[in-house]
């Protein structure tokens, strides 16, 4: 079994061509990057603004509860069979547009909730002190709130990334693009080694992205050095969705 999986993964012929591992991997990466960027552009500004004004908390927190309850599979199907359709969409492949929309929809909840919570949980004293020193609202936001909230916001981006990658895999169930196609193809042809090989690729991809995100998180945290001296941080609850 393991030998079959290894020989499948090491056979160059399985990597090349229109339906090869290479093409699907590029497709899935492209989908992931595009969807994450779109979600950042759409989700970050309103969440940052609402967090700064400390308004709309009910909405920002509940959006992630709703996101969790709705099955990715159902949304993909409704989009692909609905008005969006499942036509080829540029480099994103079959049902590319429907998949991209679903990916963005499921990336938004962890992004919005973490960003909002991150900003509102910044110490009120620090914000008031900055205002008292005569900082403008913009300055308070960029110099105090944003740096202090960065770890929580980055955590939201990481959760969104993992969610996007998982959702992109499920797109294959709707005959969409991405690496999940290797898994569904294996099931269709009763080739367990192909199913497992596809699963290994998807899982490794997810772990690699997670590791890169953790590194980016450390690098991007402006308060890193100050925080290092503090006591060990507590284990937070999982805020992200799952696909």
């Amino acid at each position: 079994m393991l030998g079959d999986v290894l020989s499948y993964l090491t056979d160059g012929a399985n990597w090349s061509g229109e339906n090869g591992i290479g093409a699907f991997a590029v497709q899935q990466l492209l989908l992931t990057v595009t969807a994450l960027l779109a979600a950042l552009v759409l989700g970050l500004p309103p969440a940052l603004y609402l967090g700064h004004r400390r308004r709309g908390g009910f909405l920002a927190v509940n959006v992630s509860n709703v996101g969790r309850a709705i099955p990715v599979f159902a949304v993909l199907l409704v989009l692909a069979l609905g008005p969006i359709g499942s036509d080829e969409f540029g480099p994103y492949g079959r049902a590319g547009l429907a998949t991209l929309i679903a990916l963005v929809l499921f990336a938004l909840p962890p992004l919005i909730t973490n960003t909002y919570v991150g900003i509102t949980e910044v110490d009120r004293g620090a914000v008031e002190a900055a205002r008292g020193m005569g900082m403008s609202e913009m300055k308070v936001f960029t110099a105090v709130e944003l740096p202090l909230a960065t770890p929580v916001i980055m955590n939201g981006i990481r959760l969104a990334l993992v969610q996007v990658w998982a959702t992109a895999t499920i797109a294959a169930l709707v005959a969409g693009p991405g690496l999940g196609r290797i898994i569904t193809r294996g099931f269709a042809n009763h080739r367990t080694y192909e199913v497992v090989a596809g699963a290994v690729l998807v899982a490794l991809g997810a772990l690699l992205l997670e590791a890169l995100a953790v590194l980016a998180e450390r690098y991007a945290d402006p308060m890193r050095r100050a925080r290092r001296q503090q006591a060990r941080t507590t284990t937070g609850a999982v805020v992200g969705g799952r696909g």
């Binding site: 993992v162 199913v195 497992v196 699963a199 290994v200 997810a206």
Partner: peptide, 14 residues
């Protein structure tokens, strides 16, 4: 938790 569900079920398949 990082492993997508479709992949996790498939890995358990054998």
């Amino acid at each position: 938790y990082t492993i997508p569900s479709l992949a996790l079920f498939s890995l358990l398949l054998p």
